[in-house]
């Protein structure tokens, strides 16, 4: 192999590495700038901070507060919390199977002038902790349970 072909290969390698580095930083810049468009939902705290324009459609995400769900006719009311701020939600329609108190949800709709979030769609969001019922019950019983906690991973 002559020195000339070696240097051509090195040049190509530098080109590839530089190209990828440029591309990566470009992508990082674009994604950072577009952050608000990429996030799927805002927490109650973020929504209160934002002073949304009236009638602006947003997605609100958080946990359904324990004991807050009330049903009147076809309309469900509940409170969504991020443990700091709370927003009351009112929704008429079909709820996902996973909807329950303490569960993560994402509601799409508008924040009314009365401060109640009028949702037109409610989706359930679950976490990445999968376990059989007995394990969940045992964790709850011996007090090791926290919402959103990671179970003791006994990988085989």
């Amino acid at each position: 192999m002559t020195a000339k072909t070696m240097s051509r290969k090195n040049r190509r390698m530098i080109l590839v590495v530089l190209g990828l580095a440029l591309l990566g930083s470009g992508a990082a810049l674009v994604l950072t700038a577009m952050n608000d468009a990429i996030v799927f939902f805002f927490s109650p705290s973020e929504i209160k901070e934002r002073n949304l324009a009236a009638d602006q459609r947003v997605r609100l995400g958080g946990l359904v507060e324990d004991g807050s769900v009330t049903k009147a006719g076809g309309t469900v009311s509940f409170i969504v919390t991020d443990t700091v701020e709370k927003i009351s939600v009112s929704y008429t329609g079909v709820l996902p199977d996973l909807f329950r108190e303490g569960q993560g949800i994402v509601a799409e709709g508008r924040l009314g002038p009365d401060g109640v979030f009028q949702a037109s769609e409610v989706l359930a969001k679950h976490d990445e902790n999968y376990m059989p019922r007995e394990v969940a019950d045992a964790l709850k019983k011996n007090g090791h349970w926290q919402p959103g906690m990671e179970p003791v991973a006994d990988t085989p």
Binding site: L31, N35, I38, V39, F40, F41, F42, S43, G61, V106, L123, K125, H126, D127, E128, N129, Y130, M131, P132, V135, E150, P151, A153, D154, T155, P156
Partner: peptide, 28 residues
């Protein structure tokens, strides 16, 4: 991790899988 998503987080973490053993086995 970078953005809020409807999709749940990754099950592969530094401490292992966020799965109970009898679910991790068939998955692996």
């Amino acid at each position: 991790e970078w953005w809020s998503t409807l999709h749940q987080g990754t099950i592969i973490t530094m401490d292992g899988l966020t799965l109970s053993g009898d679910m991790a086995r068939p998955l692996l």
